[in-house]
Design a protein around this nucleic acid. Structure first.
Length: 430
RNA sequence: GGGGAGGUACCAGAGCGGUCAAAUGGGGCAGACUGUAAAUCUGUUGGCACAGCCUUCGGAGGUUCGAAUCCUCCUCUCCCCA
């Protein structure tokens, strides 16, 4: 049995561990879980940290449980800055759960006959019939308000400077989540809950419940919040979240996200989001230090995670597209591309459709970019960016008096517009 | 219920009768340098038919040649006392 805690430790994935956790995991196969809110039918990369913890857990010979928070997701965790949640109806909940499972199955083994195959549970299943009266009698009785009040998440909300107070519902959250742990302890023998560092308080309420109600021992392990070296939020771009669902975030955009990670972040992320060995990662870092412009770290990171989330083929397509877009591509190479390659290269690049008539008599570039399409929100902004030399059509800089006509079309019906270095748009004519 | 402070652009925050499309900082966007990195520097950041015009300073009215700035009412937020 591999030392799971040690594995997470060198990967920088441990924020806090309850004493005794490591010893237990060394002794025998342990069942452990993390919770995920089924608020959407896709995960985003923020969820990936939890999933990777489970993956390392399973690879170390233990049994991972994914707990879908159908019930808890309706309440809203006061630890985060999360707003009031919307209630999901049951069909949506089930649909989301199935979608999430499909994505998580890329990382965990749910189907084999191995004794440590992964399990998925949904707390809605045991909470939906639980009456309020039964809950306060069987669960609430065992935990004192004093104990609950001592949690940082609660204290912050009650005495905080921007203290808006907290509703009873939110206050109860830790009991509901704690009860999940108890339930999983009873039904699956689950003895460890993992999560982000903001979950520590909630997790320990669970271990406390297991101790008081079931007389058992359970443990907690949290990982640090993933940050960016520049202080920004991890996993967010101007376009929003980076999703695992290819319809929300194309494999090309997904790959680009990881390729664009800064050097300091790449070192950190490659430990967290890949299963590469310590020595291999250190070797890559040495290589990267020798020739930083080659960005071997980013490339390795993007490779592993794109293949895991999407597929080898998607990865290759993303690399090819990136080479054409960011390599030595010129207007000539663009014109030489066949329609099929062109479309596959620009799969995942935002598209705009315009009528052919627009170009018949030539169309002013401003009107094309800020009228016919919404590449720019206003002509003024398009004009400004052009003045700075930030706009290209088919990889050639254009000025505000440029007129676009059908002669410039690629393959007779495409235009490649570029705003700045990294933003591409495909205009389809016809 | 009583008293006070205040609502200004994406955010924070100046301005308190004309020179205000509104200081400054942050953020955003773009450029240079590089490696599609970081740091740095530069430009830009309401719209348009762009040396001009139009719409903006919580909302509605009013005073004035002229209002983000003064007055009235409404509205929302925050603080203190009860």
């Amino acid at each position: 049995m591999k030392n799971f805690v040690e594995e997470l430790r060198w990967r920088g994935m441990i924020h806090d561990v309850m004493p005794g956790t490591e010893e237990m995991l060394q002794k025998e196969m342990v069942t452990a879980y993390v919770g995920i809110d089924p608020t959407a039918d896709s995960l985003h990369i923020g969820h990936l940290v939890s999933i990777m913890m489970l993956r390392h857990l399973q690879r170390s010979g233990h049994r991972p449980v994914v707990l879908v928070g159908g019930a808890t997701g309706m309440i809203g965790d006061p630890s985060g800055k999360s707003q009031e949640r919307n209630l999901l109806d049951e069909p949506t909940l089930r649909h989301n759960q199935e979608c999430l499972k499909g994505q998580i199955a890329h990382f965990l083994d749910f189907d084999s006959e191995a004794p440590n195959k992964a399990v998925m549970a949904n707390n809605y299943d045991w909470m939906k019939e639980f009456s309020f009266l039964n809950f306060i009698r069987d669960v609430g009785k065992h935990i004192t308000v004093n104990y609950m009040m001592a949690k940082d998440s609660v204290k912050k909300r009650i005495s905080g400077e921007n203290g808006e107070g907290m509703s009873f519902t939110e206050f109860t959250y830790q009991l509901v989540q704690g009860y999940d742990f108890l339930e999983l302890y009873r039904t699956l023998g689950c003895r460890l809950q993992m999560g982000g560092s903001d979950q520590w308080g909630n997790i320990t309420t669970g271990t406390e419940m297991i101790r008081r109600i079931a007389g058992g021992e359970a443990y907690a392990l949290t990982c640090p919040l993933i940050t960016k070296s520049d202080g920004g939020k991890f996993g967010k771009t101007e376009q929003g979240n980076i999703w695992l669902d290819p319809d929300r975030t194309s494999p090309y955009q997904f790959y680009q996200f990881w390729i664009n990670v800064s050097d300091t972040d790449a070192s950190k992320y490659i430990r967290i989001f890949t299963t590469r060995l310590k020595e291999a990662i250190e070797a890559l870092e040495a290589e990267h230090a020798q020739a930083p412009h080659l960005r071997v770290l980013q490339k390795a990171l993007a490779h592993d995670i794109t293949c895991d989330v999407h597929s080898e083929a998607d990865y290759i397509a993303a690399v090819e597209a990136s080479e054409i877009l960011f390599g030595k591509g010129t207007t000539e190479t663009l014109h030489r591309l066949g329609e099929k390659t062109l479309l596959s290269v620009f799969d995942g690049v935002p598209r705009f459709n315009i009528a052919k008539e627009v170009l018949d008599n030539g169309c002013n570039i401003l009107d094309l970019l800020a009228g016919q399409t919404s590449i720019f929100p206003s002509k003024g902004e398009a004009r400004r960016t052009m003045k700075d030399g930030g706009v290209m059509i088919n990889r050639e800089k254009v000025a505000e008096d440029t007129v676009i006509n059908t002669a410039q079309l690629l393959n007779g019906r495409y235009l490649l517009a570029q705003r700045g270095k990294k933003n591409y748009y495909l205009i389809i004519v016809g």
